[in-house]
Each structure stands twice: as C-alpha cells, then as structure tokens.
Amino acid sequence: MSDVLLEVKNLTRTFDVSLPWLNRVIERQDRQFLRAVDNVSFQIRRGETFALVGESGSGKSTIAKMVVGLLPASDGQILFDGQAMDVNSSAAMTQLRSRFQMIFQSPFASLNPRWRVRDVIAEPMKAFGTVDGKAAIDSRVDELLDLVGLGASDAGKFPHEFSGGQRQRIAIARALSSNPEFIVCDEPTSALDVSVQAQILNLMRDLQDELGLTYLFISHDLSVVRHMANRIGVLYLGALVETADGKELFKAPRHPYTRMLLEAVPDLEMTGKEHSVVKGEIPNPIDPPPGCTFHPRCEFVAERCRNDIPVPVPTPTGEAKCFAVEEGRI
C-alpha cells in the first residue's frame, strides 16, 4: 500500500467565457478562455490534512470539484490510491466514488430542505449498498448522528429545524455514511460563526483521529488552515505558488504572495506591529499578466519575472514558484 492516497498531476481547467456567437461577431471579439486552474500538481499522504489556501478566483473550489469528479479536468491527471479517476468510465468511478466524499461550504444549501435528516444521511449508504435493510440503515444513522454530536431523536426532523452548525454536523454525518477514506472539505466553516466554527473544526479533527481520514481542506482563512493542516498549498490565479509543511509556511513563508497574505491577516494578539500596506489587487484572470502572474504586486520583482514563467524550486519542506527564491534573493 502506497503512502500517497491522492496524487494530482498537472491539473488544468479552462472555462470558455466567450460572449454568445452573435455578440462576438457584432462586437468583433475573439473567443475568451479563463484558465481557472493552471498546471497544478500535489500529493496527499494517507491520514494527513492537505490544505489549499487562496483568495477568490484562485481556483481552489474548481480543484475540489475536479478531485471529486463533479467537474471534468481540461488536462492533467488525478490518481486516487494509484487508480486514475475517469469521469467517463462509470464502472471504475462507482468503485472509487464510495471511497471519497465532500463537505460543502453552505450548510443551508447542502441539505435537501424537503428531506428528513434520516434520509439525507442514509442516501450514500443506499446508493452504494454498503448497508442493507431498513433496520440496519436506521441504526447506522443513529450511530452517525451520535458520532457527530447529535441525538437519535434528530433523525426524524427536517433541516430547517437546525442551526447552521448543527446542519454542518448533519452534512458531516452524510459524508461519513459510506465509510470514505478521503474527504474534500470545501470551506466547511466559512458560513459559520466563530464559536460554532471552533466546534466543527474540533469535531473534524477528532473524526480524523478516530477514523483515520485524509482531508483535502479548502479555505480562504489562513488561521483556520494553520489550525487544521499538516501541509499547505498556496494558490494564486489558478497556480500553486508555494507548498510547505504547515508550521514552516507560517514561520518562514518563501513566496512573496504568501508573505503578503500573512501580512494581511488581522493581528489578534495586538502586538501593535505595523503592517506594510498590501499592494494592488488580483488581476483579471481572463487577461493575466505575462511572466510570473504576481509580478505587478511583488516587491522583489526583477526583469526576469516580467517575461519568464517561474518553475517550482525546492524549499526546506516543499517548493515555491519564484525567481527570487531560486536566485536566493529571498
């Protein structure tokens, strides 16, 4: 058994964002493509939490959707436990599908409002036939509810009878019901209040320890990622600019973008340190800058950065895509 559970190789996804044909002809525009994910590669080892962090438009949710097969990749490969995921081959996918699950961002939209909690949680069991018989399913649902900190009496209720945090617990119970090894968590707490977020994050960590789960954790919140992840990948405009071990990334960020992100996080410790002001904004992804896409905002910019695209260079615990790092300027 290999140590690596999920391997993503050169994953790319482009979206056609062209205007309708008639408008293009009239306005004399060419077809336009948006490269939402650009040549992203990473590995996730069994039992670890790998986090992808980035701002809006960085492509993190697109990667999550491709990993679980909700969106086909334009290019590249996703290997789950050594097996290639192929959305088009239904037989192979059914086999794989029972081994991974997803927890979504909005606890309000992720549960069907017309379904009772019992049916919501039982759906994956029924779909994969992992548990047979009504009695067995019911008792498994009760077990799962207990596992996520709800009661068996909640099984007969509808989602609207629960608070946001409780709904996210139900969504977690559903994700666990087919006994997956791997769970993609797409901003699982960004719609929750912080005290509830703490409950859900703790629960997710407990479940990971108890069930030996592997997480791909998607978030825009650096402090949450800091708390959850063993390894972290930083995305900027669809490309992975830096990967590193969790602690290392926060202690010694390499890529200038990572540095900027860390700088921008509000300081709760009230150390009174001065922030250097963040420069510029994320460019339009349809028309990204040439060379290194971060160069217009970068304080370490050199001539090379404006023309050439950097390749990943090794850092103590990972790699970074930056000429300044390569040249030892950072």
Binding site: M93, R97, M102, A109, S110, N112, A127, R174
Partner: peptide, 26 residues
Amino acid sequence: GKEYVQAARLIGRSPVAIMVRHILPN
C-alpha cells in the same frame, strides 16, 4: 446549482433520480 444536488451527483445518483427525488419536491 445548490450543493445538495452536487452531493447527490457525487455519489453517482442518476439524473432521473436527482430530478425526481431531489429537485422536483423543491
């Protein structure tokens, strides 16, 4: 576009099942 439909697609439910069991009641 809602996530509960994505959750059903994720576990490989057929389009007919998703339309009838998930979307129709809503």
